[in-house]
Design a protein around this nucleic acid. Structure first.
Length: 187
DNA sequence: GCCAACGTTGGC
DNA sequence: GCCAACGTTGGC
C-alpha cells in the first residue's frame, strides 16, 4: 500500500501520510480510502490518491475489496527522496463504503457515485511494526531484475510490472522474500 | 522540477 | 473504434 511521506498539496489539501503519521493515529489505525488513500479516524479525509484512471481505480479497488481481516501489507513510501518499504500494517476492518466520495468539498468527491450504490471502498489498517531496516525501491529493483533471469520470487512483482497501482497484491513468495531481506545487509 | 510510463477522454 | 490530446503517477 503506497502512501506519500512528504508534503504535497492536492486541491489545497496536504496529502502527506507517512508511517509515522499512521503510528500517531488513535489506536495506530487509519482508514485507507480506495480511491485516494488515507483518512483520519476523526472523519477528516487526508492522504494521497490511490490511483487515477478508472481502470487502475477499479483494479486498486478490487484489490482493496479482496483484503481480509488480519492480513498484512507493506506500507510503502512513494513519491519521496528514497522510496521503499517502511513497515508492516494489518487489515483491521474489511472493505466498506468510503464516505469521502459523497462529500462535495472533499478533493476525492465523486459526483457519479450514488449513496445507494457506492463506487468506492476503504479498509482500515493498523500499524504493526517498522521494518527492521528500510527496504528501498532500489534494492527491490535489483532483486527484481536478477529474478527476471533466474526465475526468483520477485520476477513478477507488481511494483515493477504494474507500477502505477497504488494498492498491489503480493504473492506469499514475494511477501516472504521481502521479509527475509530484513535480516540481510542491503545489496 | 522534469518527464517517461501509462491510463482516460472525446472528436471524428 | 481509432488515436491525438491530455492528465496522473511516481521515480529520478
Amino acid at each position: 500500500m503506497k502512501s506519500e511521506p512528504e508534503s504535497r498539496l492536492e486541491k489545497g489539501v496536504d496529502v502527506k501520510f507517512s508511517i509515522e503519521d499512521l503510528k500517531a493515529q488513535p489506536k495506530q489505525t487509519a482508514c485507507w480510502d480506495g480511491v485516494r488513500n488515507y483518512q483520519f479516524t476523526n472523519g477528516l479525509c487526508s492522504g494521497q490518491c490511490l490511483h487515477t484512471s478508472l481502470g487502475v481505480l477499479a483494479k486498486a479497488r478490487n484489490f482493496l475489496r479482496a483484503m481480509q481481516l488480519g492480513q498484512e501489507a507493506f506500507f510503502y513510501h512513494s513519491n519521496c527522496k528514497e522510496p521503499g518499504i517502511a513497515g508492516l500494517v494489518k487489515i483491521v476492518k474489511e472493505a466498506y463504503p468510503d464516505h469521502t466520495q459523497f462529500e462535495k468539498n472533499n478533493p476525492h468527491y465523486d459526483p457519479s457515485s450514488k449513496e445507494d450504490n457506492p463506487k468506492w471502498s476503504m479498509v482500515d489498517v493498523q500499524f504493526v511494526r517498522m521494518m527492521k531496516r528500510y527496504i528501498t525501491l532500489a534494492e527491490l529493483k535489483t532483486h527484481y531484475q536478477a529474478h527476471k533471469t533466474t526465475g526468483g520470487p520477485l520476477k513478477n512483482m507488481a511494483l515493477f510490472t504494474r507500477q502505477r497501482l497504488s494498492i498491489q497484491p503480493l504473492t506469499r513468495e514475494e511477501f516472504d522474500f521481502i521479509l527475509s531481506l530484513e535480516e540481510k545487509e542491503p545489496s
